[in-house]
Design a protein around this nucleic acid. Sequence first.
DNA 1: GTCTATATTTTGATAGAC
DNA 2: GTCTATCAAAATATAGAC
Lengths: 193, 193
Amino acid sequence: MTERGPYAKGVAKREEILAAALEHFARKGYDRASVREIAREAGLSQAGLLHHFSTKEELFLEVLRRRDDRDGDPEQHRHVHSVDHLIHAVEHNVDEPGLVRLFVSMSAESVDESSPTRSFFESRYDWLRGELRADIERRQKGGEISPDLDPDDVASLLVAAADGLQLQWLLQPDKVDMPNQLKVLWDLIRKNA
Amino acid sequence: MTERGPYAKGVAKREEILAAALEHFARKGYDRASVREIAREAGLSQAGLLHHFSTKEELFLEVLRRRDDRDGDPEQHRHVHSVDHLIHAVEHNVDEPGLVRLFVSMSAESVDESSPTRSFFESRYDWLRGELRADIERRQKGGEISPDLDPDDVASLLVAAADGLQLQWLLQPDKVDMPNQLKVLWDLIRKNA
DNA sequence: GTCTATATTTTGATAGAC
DNA sequence: GTCTATCAAAATATAGAC
């Protein structure tokens, strides 16, 4: 139940570092964020931080994994997803602009082929689209959604809308209502003959 | 008709620099792209480049303006836009992954409040949503689209979908058909009772 | 585990010759 | 208009003491 004595301190510090890193990466993006600054905010030196995470990239990837875990199972991040979960996540995101910024910045940077996060996002989108497609197919069998719609198209569209709304919302929070507009899309999908 | 003699060379070099800069900013993002590299690819020294564009930011903003001009009027970029234009632009983007990457990277970086491009993208989204909303309203009066839909919501959704699809397409070109999926959304909007 | 000190690299920008 | 040379300021990462 309790962590073994000698490691308790190290684990706590790790968490402190990750919290500071999340905030910094979210606010500045990967490049502009500096390990020094993160260390300072976590209350230790740069070298001290690099004892826990030996490179900036390693730290960054750990932060990314944590962000993902927020929405679900911390173990495998393979919990069942659905449109309801997506909408719920977007509603939750309104209260976490830092996380949204992290996600938007990092997904954009991942399009570079040499990006350390490219494969992370590729598999994330595979997983997300797959889960949504399964949910759509389920609802098509139940008669909630027209069988004329391609489940893959719908899944991509839902993910795209969520992503795109995040971007507009970050730039102009007053002009975009993310959850509401995603629901408008969802209504269009369900009401379609 | 022809440029004045003494300036012809300078203008040509400027274009060469801008072309190299576009590619670099698109591939690496603003931070990772270095003026040195861009200069080298344009066939001159860093100092030589900075004679034409005295700061990195100035160079960058000029590249951004050019990208925008591709889709329309090079003068004011205030040509009338519409859903048809949006779909057409997306179809065109399939052949220009470099431009798409530039746009995705830069719009994401612009969410940082200190970003030199923040205001650029804010006004760009204002303009784009405004044009689309006007188009939607026009079509609602013509009976093509249900009057029950909020034109602002629809405009935001269309822009969001286009942006989000770009991201997925850059990561996995084989798994996403941008123009087709945008048309699916457009059909949903029009067919909705 | 954490520190100080430092090596190394890279960056944006400037000065001044040609 | 373009160059070489250089500055000053970051950054990541490492070495070694404690």
